[in-house]
């Protein structure tokens, strides 16, 4: 019983350390600097003229 637990808890510690390091890396690379930008940017792409209901009215341009 305890053998299995020790193995599982050991794994937990290992994974937790990696999760922590991953988060540290994300913080350092500035992923939490601008929480709104990426969400908006993906919506405002340059594919707008390709959406039929938004096609420009006076033809191709």
């Amino acid at each position: 019983m305890n053998g299995v637990l020790i193995y599982l808890l050991g794994m937990t510690v290992f994974i937790v350390v990696f999760a922590g390091l991953g988060f540290f890396w994300a913080v350092r690379s500035g992923q939490f600097e601008d929480m709104e930008g990426p969400a908006q940017r993906i919506l405002m792409d340059d594919d707008d003229p390709m959406i039929p209901r938004r096609r420009l009215k006076d033809g191709e341009n």
Partner: peptide
């Protein structure tokens, strides 16, 4: 401010992960 913010975030992460376990 950026450094402080990053440090705060790291502290929250550590506390959060530990707290779950």
């Amino acid at each position: 401010r950026k450094k402080e913010r990053q440090r705060d975030l790291r502290r929250i992460a550590v506390a959060g992960i530990s707290m779950m376990q």
